[in-house]
């Protein structure tokens, strides 16, 4: 086992956008992880802000839970504006 834990790297590519997962890297601690992320993932001005998160701190939904987690949303079409009919000529709705 490596003594350098794995870190997941999230980058805000420019102001106004969310941080997006860019990849991962190894570092002994958070400060070095942040610096490594800067050197590895923003060499071409890809970012204005970086998060690093220990990979072990991420809890992910599993594919087995996929149906229970995500399928129930499929029939809630009334959550989308296109579900509703608007009389012709009505604006700003």
């Amino acid at each position: 086992m490596s003594r350098e834990p794995l870190w997941e790297v999230f980058i805000r590519s420019r102001r106004g956008l969310s941080h997006v997962h860019a990849g991962s890297l190894h570092a002994a601690d958070a400060e070095m992880a942040l610096r490594n992320a800067r050197d590895v993932y923003t060499r071409r001005q890809e970012g204005v802000s970086i998060w690093v998160v220990p990979a072990s701190a991420i809890l992910a939904s599993s594919p087995e839970e996929k149906d229970a987690f995500f399928d129930p949303a499929a029939d809630k079409v009334y959550r989308h504006p296109t579900f509703y009919e608007i009389p012709e000529g009505v604006e700003h709705l």
């Binding site: 350098e4 890297l25 190894h26 570092a27 610096r35 490594n36 050197d39 590895v40 060499r43």
Partner: peptide, 10 residues
């Protein structure tokens, strides 16, 4: 470490 190759090059 490989990360440091990148850092020193920078």
């Amino acid at each position: 470490q490989i990360e440091e190759d990148v850092a020193m090059a920078n």
